[in-house]
Amino acid sequence: MEHVLGFVALAAGLIIGLGAIGACIGIGLMGGKYIEASARQPELMNALQTKMFLLAGLIDAAFLIGVGIAMMFAFANPFKLV
């Protein structure tokens, strides 16, 4: 029983950690590109900003779905043999 709980805790941590790596690298790259683009063409700053926020949300999607699932594992543990 303890093995199950231990592994679930590990799994939850891994899900969040690996997801965070991907999401943060993605948004970091996109943010950098956005700043470069707005430096090069300031008049496009507004239009690009809406698209940047939309893409930031999309990049975060997989990560936060993972966080949702990991939190569900942590609190409403479906693997408990109850």
Partner: peptide, 12 residues
């Protein structure tokens, strides 16, 4: 993914 994205953000 459309539904889970909103759920994941709000649940977390």
């Amino acid at each position: 993914s459309h539904g889970m994205r909103l759920f994941g953000n709000m649940y977390a």
